[in-house]
Design a binder for these strands. Structure first.
Lengths: 369, 369
DNA sequence: CGATTAAGGGTAATCGATTACCCTCGTCAA
DNA sequence: TTGACGAGGGTAATCGATTACCCTTAATCG
């Protein structure tokens, strides 16, 4: 076995750095000041019932205050074999959709006294694996997979019943797993209905590779509904964009869309794709949405200002955080244990007339299954 | 002293939940399997020189592999009084600027084997204080303040020499502190030069309240340069937007900008503000940038697609992560200790002709001072 | 009145790493 | 030949919390 090239694990090349330390009070000192044992301090802090009299409790809290004591997370985690950290693995913070959902999750976690570790995985299975291992080493309270891809460690995590919650995209493996998202099938079908009702008898579809359940649901449901309404032979050409969505969509639009015979309706499976397509359409002098109706997916709040010509399906960003917290709770709380695996959030269809948009609540709201 | 209302600190209302545990191997088991002491295992793992023969090293690494051992972060942190976590406190992930910089920081940290805890503070001093305390309890490796506001705990952290790095906005207190950002003074002055060169003899300024050094630098430098070029009596009306930037800018633009006598040039201290202003301009039928030249600040990559009419100062997002890591290193690495407090990154001026943009490198590049 | 039981609180084990300190060999120079 | 020194490695203390277990006291119940 060849020796490994001694990759140093230490930070910045030196061991035991001159660590700027803030010597903070320990539970020991609090106990001494309050005149009780550390056990009692711990119990007071953690509100263990029937383990401290009112008087003791107050003495302890006074000492905590006086020393501005903060329990060491490391000590606690070591003993409990569990930290109060929740890992969020997202493909890319540069994508507004992921950033907004991460923000919502962070707020909801904070209200539970949890903190969020956030990692960009770039949809790379190796990176995802590395971060999943990191989460295991941190003994996290939960792991939120925002856009999971298939990877060995994910499979392993599912087997060992790790507290995983899949957001938006479902678990890539066919096993029962907790999930939070909107009903993409219903949403895409409503988009098809809308386009048909506006006298469109066909549409182009720009979509990402069908690796994720979200993309698949959107595309197939759109096709099914459209063909149900307009006949099985209605034109629904598909164009598949690659990873760098905006740019790729723009390039592909340049190749396929001309000013003379543009498609009258385009369905994009994300807003990002729509931005690329629309950019080209505007550059060749088409008016949106008069000449071409473009539908996106996600509902970036910025659209109202920057893309008022875009119709889209708006995700309820602000609801993701609470829903994720609820799903995580099911791993721990007896009461929540029977909660259904899927949490389906309501979406809105946002229709554009070019300058302004109108919101339409979905025909059905949120539901669980 | 009245009894506190026993706010439970436990998660989800119950103690000792049915914790889905993945029993992971400990250093003890690795040592046993390799036939050495835990001390040796630790030394091999941490690459302590001259503490293990090649043969021993290989036996240990083989055992590590066999048990797929991962060192417990809690155990390590407890002993070393320092975790490998870096806290990033950002105002709002919904803002693309903050999201992109956070993403860049995360990538750079990961390459050092560090992980990022991210928290939205919403520029709220109380929230910022709560998170600063949380970081202390986590004994973080460093704290990145992306848009800091004044708060007691921040002051305290500065006094105790906590490893703080301020990004974009400088430290709100007048003490020496590490900082990473662009030269806002230079950038704003170049914008003024550009507008003057395009025959503008005045400009409106939309800016956020001047709480942060970034806003102040941008506004005052722009004013100074413009007056230097166009005379002290050139018209430079200021309009101050409030917290919800896009909306507020839009409302204020509605109040002040009419189609009959629009300003010919508008300088906005962030892209977000520019979006709001531009939205109104487009709604009242003005052409951008033919009728009105709008300058933003930050350079959201989305602009190329959604706001090609916007000229802006582009921040080098991808450079923030490495720069922040370098600044953090100065707290630990002897070699980096003499690194200057300020890391100034280069910016680009992006000029719009309506449909396309051209990049202009700044007259001076990055520098340190 | 004796037996239970609940409340209040202390003792010490425990979690999993790192590291100060000590020990044993060789090697090598004086 | 001796002493110093470096390499290699073990022992046990230590970090800061939580919690199993035990003890005392007072109240309650039949």
């Amino acid at each position: 076995m060849p020796s490994k090239p001694a990759k140093p694990r230490t930070m910045f090349g030196i061991r035991d750095p001159k660590a700027p330390q803030t010597p903070t009070a320990s539970i020991e000192e609090v106990a001494r000041l309050a005149g009780v044992s550390t056990a009692t301090v711990s119990r007071v802090i953690n509100n263990v019932p029937n383990k401290a009299s009112q008087a003791t409790r107050e003495r302890v809290l006074r000492a905590v205050e006086a020393l501005s004591y903060l329990p060491s997370r490391a000590g606690r985690a070591l003993r409990q074999k569990r930290s109060h950290i929740v890992g969020v693995l997202a493909p890319d913070l540069g994508n507004a959709y992921h950033a907004l959902i991460s923000g919502s999750i962070e707020r909801a976690l904070r209200e539970q006294g949890l903190v969020m570790v956030l990692a960009n995985t770039g949809e790379d299975p190796d990176l995802q694996d590395a971060m999943l291992q990191e989460m295991r080493a941190l003994q996290v309270f939960g792991i939120v997979m925002l856009g999971a891809v298939e990877s060995p460690e994910l499979q392993h995590g599912l087997k060992s019943n790790e507290p995983l919650v899949f957001v938006n995209r479902r678990c890539p493996y066919d096993v029962p797993a907790r999930h939070v998202g909107i009903d993409n099938v219903l949403a895409a079908s409503e988009v098809a209905e809308y386009l048909f009702a506006r006298h469109h008898r066909g549409a182009w579809i720009f979509h990402a590779p069908l690796k994720s359940s979200a993309s698949r649901d959107r595309v197939t449901s759109f096709q099914r509904k459209f063909q149900e309404l307009a006949g099985a032979d209605c034109p629904l050409p598909e164009i598949v964009v690659s990873t760098r969505r905006r740019d790729s969509a723009y390039q592909l639009a340049r190749q396929h869309i001309s000013a003379e015979t543009p498609p009258r309706a385009i369905f994009c499976t994300t807003d990002e794709i729509a931005y690329g397509v629309a950019r080209h359409c505007l550059e060749i002098g088409l008016s949106l949405p008069q000449d071409v109706t473009i539908f996106g997916f996600d509902g970036n709040p910025m659209n109202e200002f920057l893309a008022p010509w875009l119709s889209t399906v708006r995700s309820p960003y602000e609801l993701f955080g609470p829903a994720v917290v609820g799903a995580l709770g099911a791993f721990y709380d007896e009461g929540e244990a029977s909660r259904p695996l899927d949490t389906i959030l309501p979406f809105e269809i946002i229709l554009s007339n070019g300058l302004h948009t109108t919101r339409t609540s979905s025909t059905t709201g949120a539901y669980v299954k």
